[in-house]
Design a protein around this nucleic acid. Structure first.
Lengths: 230, 230
DNA sequence: CCGTGCCAAATTGTATACAAAATAATGATC
DNA sequence: GATCATTATTTTGTATACAATTTGGCACGG
């Protein structure tokens, strides 16, 4: 048929050849891993030789991360890794609840059968990892499940916004000692909203997801308090 | 009057001394005003002499606008003003509906009495401008009303996200010939949700705002179609 | 006449050099 | 001895120069 065009824009074959692009990825990872803790100044030259690049691409990367909210730029005074403000996290979760609800509703409506099946498998894996006490693996699967739900919503704007908030929340989580008691609760909630998902009950699924998000918020923020007791 | 300072700090006394910061503002305005239409290539050197700056701050500005979604960066192939894709706008509105609902609900809960009164005054102004047929002024007031509602929600994350989407929607609106018949309808909807607001009925107000957003979406997307008829 | 390969021009990506501002460090004065 | 002013150092902001990649054109061969 149309074998004319082999162009095949395969979504993103774009090679990340540019240094500032890799620098963004690298710095973001460093911030998320806690290698660059919140509040620390980020001397440009030092990071330059650490990453083996020049100041130009590094500065471009810092500007991007700034507009993502991961670093703060003070004119003529250098950049600092954005501090994790519990109030800001609370605000983010407030929006996140709404996004989760929307994602759940849309996912029910727009998801493919294969995707629903995949979610089921991921959920089984999640439960298994919980029972096995594999904390790190559990968190990864958990994130993947929510990412999958968002992907099934078929809404790029939602996906991007969700991803940005998820990044910040992830950083807050890694800083706070997540309450162990919340773990079982969280798994239970997963169990419940999965039943709604299997019924393809869009409204209910969305509502349960929002609820799950809200409870997670409470736990995370509570775990965050000791760090910044007033 | 206040002839002392025309600075007009608006919550941010930070002097925009850096060139790349002003470049971001300048370019964003140029894109929103349609001076840089969607899809056009953006030769760096040309813009440089046009803005009277060097390539370094300009490139930093382009990276920021890229992460805002206003320009697209193709590695080694230059930057283009992001095209306005009706599908993307539809997706954005889908999220926007949820944000409007959230904003409305929170505004009812967290708004101050003086702010509610201010909204009332703005609404009166809106109606007057509609009756006077002052289209441009009406649109401005309309935006200000929604911005005020969002501000009353007391949620910076919501405000930032809302603002980003509003920018893109604004650009889509300016491109499309907004349907005249929708005007009266829109005013009527404002009238309705203002009554819910005066009752401080958070849920109802949020629902009506979301509804208003959804109807606006339909009108804007419809007006956008002729541009990209297949 | 059309396709392929190579070369040249233009444009982007990166590095470095210079200018301006902020922080520190020092010394003078009270 | 402490505080303020002034200077020196460091760090950021900007400009320019150089390297790498893409794009358009041209010649050559089919």
């Amino acid at each position: 048929m149309d074998a004319l065009k082999t162009v095949k824009t395969t979504a993103r074959p774009i090679r990340r050849s540019t240094l500032h692009h890799s620098a963004v990825a690298e710095l973001r990872a460093m911030i998320l891993d806690g290698e660059l803790p919140p509040g620390v100044r980020v001397p440009e030259v030092q990071l330059c030789e650490q990453l083996g690049i020049s100041r130009t691409p590094l500065r471009e990367a810092l500007r991007v991360l700034s507009s993502e909210g991961l670093v703060e730029l003070r004119p003529h005074r250098g950049a600092i890794v954005a501090p994790v403000d519990p109030n800001e996290i609370a605000a983010i979760f407030e929006v996140m609840d709404a996004l989760e609800r929307l994602a759940g509703t849309l996912a029910c409506k727009n998801g493919l059968d294969t995707e629903f099946a995949k979610l089921d498998r991921m959920h089984d894996q999640l439960v298994a990892q919980h029972e096995a006490g594999e904390r790190a693996a559990y968190f990864l699967t958990n994130r993947q499940i929510h990412a999958q739900i968002v992907a099934m919503a078929r809404n790029p704007a939602l996906e991007a916004t969700y991803g940005g908030f998820a990044t910040k929340i992830l950083r807050a989580r890694s800083l706070a000692n997540y309450d162990a008691g919340r773990w079982q609760e969280s798994v239970d909630e997963h169990e419940v909203f999965m039943t709604a998902l299997r019924r393809r009950d869009a409204e209910e699924f969305g509502a349960l997801l929002a609820d799950h998000s809200r409870r997670t918020a409470v736990a995370v923020i509570q775990a965050l308090q000791p760090v910044r007791a007033p």
